[in-house]
């Protein structure tokens, strides 16, 4: 697994984490290219189905990054997101996956450093966990299904 470069999807709230990611960029704070962002208006919009879909399509890790607790632009979307993340973690556990492949994070718009740091840390963790179980088992058939 020396050269394993995980695919990581980050669902980021427009009001905080997405802005924090822009902030990280404007401060030229580096983080791994593995992390790719999908912008959502609020993490409360992130459906369990989206997270599952990301894993199905080959994501090795997924995280949902919303506003700090109590700071949600829409009152409680971020806490709803955290509940859903926990629910999907339970599903992953039933499937025999490491639940650390999915995480909920909180940061404010000004926290460019936090965005960069958590992106690094999460990528590092996924690297340790190795490729997603769907890829580990049988890469050939995985390729086939993705076609």
């Amino acid at each position: 697994m020396e050269n394993f470069e995980p695919e990581i999807i980050a669902f980021c709230c427009h009001y905080c984490a997405y802005t924090a990611a822009d902030m990280a960029g404007s401060k030229r704070l580096s983080y791994p290219t593995n992390v790719k962002i999908i912008r959502v208006p609020c993490t409360g919009k992130v459906d369990a189905l989206h997270i599952m879909s990301a894993f199905e399509k080959g994501a090795d890790g997924v995280y949902v990054a919303g506003c700090l607790e109590g700071d949600c632009h829409f009152k409680n979307g971020n806490t709803r997101a955290a509940q859903r993340v926990a629910h999907v973690q339970k599903i992953l556990q039933d499937l025999g996956w490491d639940t650390q492949r999915l995480a909920m994070m909180n940061m404010s718009a000004g926290m460019g450093e936090v965005f960069a740091r958590t992106a690094c840390e999460f990528t590092e963790k996924i690297k340790q966990l190795g490729p997603s179980p769907v890829k580990q088992m049988n890469t050939d058939s995985y390729r086939q299904t993705q076609r």
Binding site: A48, A59, G77
Partner: peptide
């Protein structure tokens, strides 16, 4: 426009314009 209802709807009967599920799934894809 937060989309909390969209993600919670058990019948998948709600869509948030400009962030519709098929758009998000297409982006993941």
């Amino acid at each position: 426009g937060c989309g909390v209802c969209v993600a919670d709807c058990p019948a998948k009967a709600i869509q948030l314009f400009a962030y519709e599920d098929d758009q998000i799934l297409a982006k993941i894809e």
